[in-house]
Nucleic acid binder design. Sequence first.
DNA 1: CTCGGTGCAAAGCTTTTGCATCCGC
DNA 2: GCGGATGCAAAAGCTTTGCACCGAG
Lengths: 163, 163
Amino acid sequence: MIQQPVFFEEVKKIFTAFLGRKKLRRTPERFAILEEIYLRKDHFDVESLYVSMQDKNYRVSRATVYNTLDLFVECDLVIKHQFGQNQAQYEKAFGFRQHDHLICTDCNKVVEFCDPRIQNIQNTVGELLQFEVIHHSLLFYANCTKVDCDRNSLAVAMGDKQA
Amino acid sequence: MIQQPVFFEEVKKIFTAFLGRKKLRRTPERFAILEEIYLRKDHFDVESLYVSMQDKNYRVSRATVYNTLDLFVECDLVIKHQFGQNQAQYEKAFGFRQHDHLICTDCNKVVEFCDPRIQNIQNTVGELLQFEVIHHSLLFYANCTKVDCDRNSLAVAMGDKQA
DNA sequence: CTCGGTGCAAAGCTTTTGCATCCGC
DNA sequence: GCGGATGCAAAAGCTTTGCACCGAG
C-alpha cells in the first residue's frame, strides 16, 4: 500500500483554499482525484489516471478528470506537459524541485534534471524582450549512450527529493 | 508577390538529394508544398498551409500535406513544434539561426530568441545523464509587460537574418 | 432550495489509415 | 508496367460539450 507523502495534508489545504477563493465546491471527486495523483510517483496521462481510479472502484467520469485536472493546473498543484503530440502528460507539482526533462528518443523514457543556469537565461531573455516570464519548459531529445535504457527517471537526476 | 529567399534553390537541392538517398519520388506535390512553406514568414499549422494551397488553386489533399511535412522534418528542412496541445506548429528550418521561443500568454504570439548558453546546459546535462542530446526545445511562457502585444515575432529577436 | 458539478454519450478536432487511382521512374 | 504517391473519405484518438440528474452549501 502506497502512502501519501508527508506534505499531502498541506496539498489538500492549498486546494481547499483555492476552491474557497474561487467559490467552487469541495466535492469528493475532486479530492479523490487529487489523492490518486499524489500517490503516483511519476508522469501520467488522463487515461491511466482514469483507469487507476476505476480499478480501485472509484467511479469518476473522464469529463470530471479533465475538468479537475484543469483546476489543479490552475492552482499549480499539477503541471501539464505536451511531450508527444497527442495525450497530454501531467505530474504533481508540489514538494518537488523545479526541473526539466530529457526524453530518450529510443525508448521514450523521460528523465528529469535540474540546471540553475536556465533561470539566468530566463531572466536575460525576459528583460531583453520586455516580457515577464512566468514559467518555462526545456526538453532535451536524446539517444541513450548506455546499455541500460531502463534507468529510473526520477532517481537519476534528482533523487526524488522534496524541495 | 512574395519571393523565395535566395537560398531556396539550395533547399530544393537538399530535398532532392534526400529523396534520392531514400529512393522516394520527386512528385510535383512535394515540391509545391516545399515552395509554399518557404514563402511563409513564420510559424504555421497544417490547416493554414492546406488552405493557402487551395486558395492558390493548387489541389493537394490533407493526407499528402501531413505525409510531406514528415519528410521535411526528417531531412531537417522543417521543424515541428507542439506549442499548444492540439494542432502542431511547423516552421522552416533552413537558413535560420538556431533559436527558441517565448509565448505570450496574453495574446499567444510567438517571439523568437537566441541564447548560446543553452548549448552549455545541453552539454552538461547530456554528459551527466550519459545521453547524447540531439536537439532541444526551450519555451518561455510570459506576460507582455509592454503596451504593444503586436510586435513582429521574427523581427524582434533575430532580425529575420539567415544563419 | 439553488445552481455548480457529475456522468454519460455524442460531438469536435486533428491526425492517421484504407483503398482505388495515378504517375514517376 | 511496377510500386510508390495521391486523394478521398472513413476511422481513430484525445478532449470538449450538452443535458439530465445529483448533491454541496
